[in-house]
């Protein structure tokens, strides 16, 4: 009974450990680069949050008009720079994707020729 239970217990981690190797579905190289949050969008979020906070603090009276103008200018510029960078990034990405697609078409076409 004990031996059986011990086996059953050992089976759980064994399966968990083996699972990623058994289902090698070509996982990508381990990297954080492609995850949703990138540095640019962090900057965008920080700038937008800064704008909101500025408005809130102005509304509750913690902020003088002059300071509010000053802060708005900074945050708007930060946000604009982030936005521009994102657009440029997107454009580059699209160009890259287009290249890849062209390349794949070419390879496929060649393979088709071979058959």
């Amino acid at each position: 009974m004990l031996v059986f239970m011990a086996f059953a217990l050992a089976l759980i981690p064994a399966l968990a450990i083996a699972y990623p190797f058994l289902t090698r579905a070509g996982r990508p190289l381990l990297s954080d680069e492609d995850t949703t949050a990138s540095e640019v969008s962090a900057r965008w979020e920080a700038a937008i949050a800064g704008l909101r906070t500025t408005e809130l603090e102005w509304a509750v009276g913690n902020l003088a008009e002059e300071d509010r103008e000053w802060l708005r200018e900074r945050y708007m510029t930060d946000a604009a720079l982030a936005l521009r960078e994102m657009e440029v990034g997107d454009a580059e990405e699209r160009a890259l994707m287009a290249t890849v697609e062209r390349e794949m078409k070419r390879v496929r076409a060649q393979a088709g020729d071979g058959e």
Binding site: I12, P13, A16, I17, A18, Y19, P20, F21, R24, R27, P28, L29, L30
Partner: peptide
């Protein structure tokens, strides 16, 4: 190595 680290994480889940 993604497979290896995933395996480590799954082990942690158990």
């Amino acid at each position: 190595m993604t497979d290896l680290s995933t395996s480590g994480r799954y082990a942690a889940y158990s």
